[in-house]
Each structure stands twice: as C-alpha cells, then as structure tokens.
Amino acid sequence: MGQRKRSILAAAGAVAVGLLGFAAPANAIANGEQVKPGRYAFSVKLTMTGIPTADGGKRNSACSGALVAPQWVITAGHCFRDANGVRVERPVADSTIATVGRTDLTNTERGHEVEIVAVRQSPTADVSLAKLAEPIRDVRPIKVGRTAPEVGDLVRVTGYGSTTSTNPAPVTWLRTGKMEVAGLTDTVTQLKGNSPQADTTPCPYDSGGPFFVERGKKGPALVAVVSNGPSCPHTQIESAARVDNIAGWIKEVTS
C-alpha cells in the first residue's frame, strides 16, 4: 500500500486511506498492548460521522488524540479536511465526538463524550487543536514538552486505531507501545518500533495519537503526534509531527 496517513476513510461500506500531502496514517498500535484501566487518561478517541466527500456523499472516520487543556484536544492536522482533502479550521463532519478518559470504549460509565465545536490548524506542522463544547475537569491534560527528544530516546504512543493495515478497524480498548527516536527534522520526529516488538507501530485511526516521554513523578511530556508511516505493522521509519517547537502556538490557542 506504500506510505499512508494514519486516519482511515470509510464510505459506502468501503475503507480507504486518507492522504494530505504526507505519507499515509496509522492504526491502533500494531503489536502493542492494552493499557491498564485508568492509565494515560488524557488519551482521546475522535469519532467523525458524516464527513462530506467530493462526489457529494458522506463518509465516517476516526482519529486519536490527547487532552492538552481542559477544553482542547491535540490531534493530527489531516484529521480535519474538507471534501477536497484540504485541511480546514472547523469541524468537517456532521458530528465529531471526543471520548476522553475511557480506556475501554464499551464502558460508558467512565469518561466523557463531548462534541468538537472548533478547530485550529498549525501553520507549520501536521497538527491541529480541537475545541471541546465544554471543559473536562476530572482528567489531567498531558503537558506539552518544549524540548525535543534525542536520537535513541524511547517514547510511548497510545491510540484507538487498528492493529493492522489489512481490513483495518478501530479497537475498543486503548493500546500502547514504545518506539525509539531515529532522527529529527524541523517538523518531524522520526521513530522506529521498539517494544513490545520491533514492529510495534501506529496504524489506521491512530492519526493524532500522542507520542510522549515518561518522567516519573514529573508526569509525561508530549513530544509529537502520529502523522504518517508505512503500512503497519512495520520495522521502517514512522514520521510523527513534532510539537516541542510549536509549544508556544499551542499555549496561545489553548489559553
């Protein structure tokens, strides 16, 4: 399938990969593991219903993300595109619901489901910020790191995507894995699989999922979000959108 964005398009019962001038997207952490209930509660599932298509139809899709402020979710910029595939600063679907603080999506007694009401796009990276209709006060947002990870550092990723690029479908339980930093560019953190396996990687519907460093009592720090990579699982290079060098923009928007 080649490289692809980490969000999947579903229309008329068919599934296709969505592209935005980057490589393709990822699934719910291939060859990862389930997250223990309550861990990484800042992780977010975005469910889009009724996205307009170029032929006048509708499609459904999903992305992952993370709560970075009580009323803001960070995700991939390509998660919000119009019928022509152009990134836009508005919700594009008839309904976009953020599920926050729910490890098991089937357990509706926990967490929140909140509508997305506005979108802001980074002018330099495949990153967007989605505003919730109301703030969430009982989930601690993840801090946005202002320092880039170094080559060789291990970072963790979470997501609700698929576990394979073959007939992909989102999972109902948050999954996670670790990847190793392989390189940096001005806008991208390059990563390769580390654990539980060497081919632990994001998959379709993982677009926008958080990559973060774990710092013990200081808490996790966000360093990038899932953007694109080869068909999963894979042992090649994954390209994540850096956030450390747009931390000022993120603070400005979310404040």
Rank of each mutant, 00 (worst) to 15 (best):
P52S: 11
P52E: 11
P52W: 06
A54R: 12
A54P: 00
A54F: 08
D55W: 09
G57H: 10
G57C: 10
G57D: 11
G57E: 12
K58M: 13
K58V: 13
R59E: 15
N60K: 09
S61H: 07
S61A: 15
A62I: 04
C63P: 12
C63T: 07
S64G: 10
G65E: 05
V68D: 07
P70V: 02
Q71I: 00
Q71C: 04
W72C: 04
V73D: 12
I74S: 10
I74C: 08
A76L: 10
A76E: 12
G77N: 08
C79L: 08
F80Q: 12
F80N: 13
F80R: 07
F80I: 04
R81V: 15
R81P: 00
D82E: 09
A83E: 14
A83P: 02
N84A: 15
V86K: 13
V88Q: 14
V88F: 11
V88N: 13
E89M: 06
E89S: 14
R90W: 01
P91E: 09
P91D: 06
V92C: 13
V92Q: 05
A93Q: 08
A93M: 09
A93L: 07
S95R: 12
S95T: 11
T96W: 01
T96L: 02
I97G: 06
I97P: 01
A98V: 00
A98F: 01
V100R: 01
G101H: 04
R102V: 03
T103E: 08
T103V: 10
T103L: 08
D104Y: 05
L105F: 03
L105P: 11
L105G: 08
L105T: 04
T106G: 12
T106C: 02
T108Y: 10
T108L: 14
E109P: 04
R110P: 02
G111K: 02
G111E: 03
E113C: 04
E113I: 00
E113T: 10
E113D: 13
E115K: 13
V117Q: 03
V117Y: 01
V119M: 03
V119F: 02
R120N: 13
Q121D: 04
S122P: 10
P123W: 06
T124P: 09
A125W: 08
A125I: 09
D126G: 11
V127Y: 09
V127H: 11
L129N: 02
A130G: 07
A130V: 00
K131W: 00
L132T: 01
L132A: 03
L132K: 00
E134R: 15
E134Q: 14
E134A: 15
I136K: 00
I136N: 02
D138F: 06
D138C: 09
V139D: 03
V139W: 01
R140V: 15
P141M: 00
I142H: 06
I142W: 04
I142V: 11
I142N: 05
I142Y: 05
K143S: 15
K143Y: 04
V144I: 13
V144G: 09
R146A: 07
R146F: 03
R146Q: 12
T147K: 13
P149G: 09
P149M: 04
E150I: 05
E150V: 13
E150D: 15
V151A: 12
V151Y: 08
D153W: 06
D153Y: 09
